[in-house]
Design a protein around this nucleic acid. Structure first.
Lengths: 298, 298
DNA sequence: CGACTCGATATCCTTGATCGTATGGATTTC
DNA sequence: GAAATCCATACGATCAAGGATATCGAGTCG
């Protein structure tokens, strides 16, 4: 048995009207084919739905049950159509987003808020990992979108979109002579002991910190190095070194550390990009990417 | 768009196989019509469901969503067929049952237990009322089945089925000379003061009590009468009168009253019948009626 | 480059769903 | 009993679904 939309509709109208003639009229058809359709329906279901007593047509208990279920079937059907269309348009769905740890502090919550407001039907699965792993997941299809540091390793299959720029600030011990300044020039620190990343965890930052110093005309005297940011923070808080860090860290006050902006910004910034597969046709990904573009810091 | 069962099935098989050729084979058809069917489906939905890339066919997000929904639609559809059939066969549904108060104590629980066990899909709506009202509700279609006292008032549209017989017992004050007996003959009470129903509430019992006395060869000296059973019980418990009552009341011990069976049973009983509309085609009612017949006390 | 794979397209056929008009048969109503 | 009402039946027409075969075109692989 195959309930066509039409057949269900015919039954429902008849169940309302309880009169073949009137029902047929409402359905813009003549009465006999309606009779036949109802017979087909009853035959297909193997149950009598209508109690045809002369002068007053009623539903059998089975008919009454079917009227309820038929309405539900029709509703379910149009809900399915609606849902599929929304998914196809990217208004509903799941996007798997990867990001590097730095991003989590300020940009990601902002983005998630915007997405929840603009694309309430979208569910975003978050995954934090290293840039290299994220890129691999993106290529293999485990991720749909990744926020990573600027140099996109393999550009052939992936496309990058600017997302955010982030200034580098100096991190000084509280008792440093410049700790109270509004800003400083990087060369003011040329005689200080530095602690910098050794490049295993955040190669972008490690590189750019050294580049910035070279541009300022000196090679930083590195008294120590560290695997990650917490290592840097430890050295600085201990009052042993100064360091260079992403400005976002200022949102997380660390006892004993002062963050001071650098004057002259151009080389002293790092950019975060949103990368997606070039061939990705997922509409939800593109909606999200569009939102990312509109909410990106330029 | 009209999702035929076949079309959904085709899509689901294709979504599993991810290969037009194999899917067509599993569907016992050739590949081209399957291609066309999927094109029709996509056109109808207004969304691309399949990502046809050479050598590997995938579902788009919309396609994946539709695969889930299509499965649900098919399940819902067969569930509807199943449910309608069960209702048509009387295995599921609602039966509105009326009963007179006396019945509630012993027979009704027994019946409900049996129904819950044998016809678990059946819901029974209970309504207690007087015989006259029940009969009227039955005729008007507000009730499907009614348990009432033997004389069925209007037999033309209704049919009666024996259900239970109930003996009449003597109700004596505790200090009555026969209160301790195992049984007594009604004529032993010919000189006692009686309290009987005046016939407004339970005309059957009122009548049969008097008939029983006449058959025993005396007219009861009525010191009082009452509207209902509680009135009778009051008089008897007060030690003022004896009375005649349905044996079921023995299940509810009343302080100060002794119930003593009567010897010679034939006239001293009342029968409860199950009445239904003669023309009722509701399968559930007939299932229940059949169960009633099998569980009736003969 | 040629064979092969795989889905799309072209073309045709069959069938059943769906509708129409005309009519029959049962019941109610006046 | 005649008229009216209401649903079922009979019969014919149409059209789209659903299928088959043959072929094309794109991409893959040895």
């Amino acid at each position: 048995m195959d309930f066509t939309q039409r057949l269900l509709e015919q039954f429902l109208v008849l169940a309302e009207e309880k009169h073949f003639g009137r029902a047929a009229e409402r359905l813009s058809m003549s009465q006999p084919p309606l009779s036949q359709a109802m017979q087909r329906l009853e035959r297909g279901l193997g149950a009598t739905l209508l109690d045809r007593r002369p002068g007053d047509l009623r539903l059998t208990p089975a008919g009454a049950a079917f009227a309820v279920e038929a309405r539900r079937l029709l509703d379910a059907r149009s809900a399915v159509v609606e849902r599929v269309r929304r998914v196809a348009q990217g208004l509903e769905g799941v996007v798997r987003v990867g990001y590097v740890s730095i991003l989590s502090h300020r940009h990601l919550p902002r983005l998630l808020r915007a997405a929840a407001e603009e694309l309430p039907g979208l569910r975003i699965h978050l995954h934090q990992d290293s840039t290299a792993t994220l890129v691999e997941m993106l290529r293999s299809g485990t991720l749909d979108l990744a926020f990573i540091r600027d140099p996109l390793p393999v550009a052939d299959e992936l496309v990058a979109h600017d997302f955010a720029v982030e200034h580098i600030v100096a991190a000084l011990p509280h008792d440093h002579r410049l700790a109270g300044s509004d800003s400083l020039a990087l060369e003011d620190l040329c005689d200080d002991d530095f602690v910098l990343l050794n490049g295993t965890a955040l190669p972008g930052l490690a590189l750019q910190a050294r580049l910035a110093c070279r541009e300022a005309g000196f090679t930083p005297r590195c008294r120590a190095d560290a695997d990650d940011l917490t290592g840097l923070l430890g050295y600085v808080a201990a009052g042993l070194c100064v360091s260079l860090m992403p400005e976002d860290l200022r949102d997380f006050p660390v006892p004993g550390i002062a963050f001071v902006p650098l004057r002259g910004s151009s080389p002293y910034l790092r950019t975060t990009i949103a990368a997606v597969r070039r061939a990705d046709a997922d509409a939800a990904v593109h909606r999200l990417l569009d939102l990312v573009a509109r909410h990106s810091r330029r």
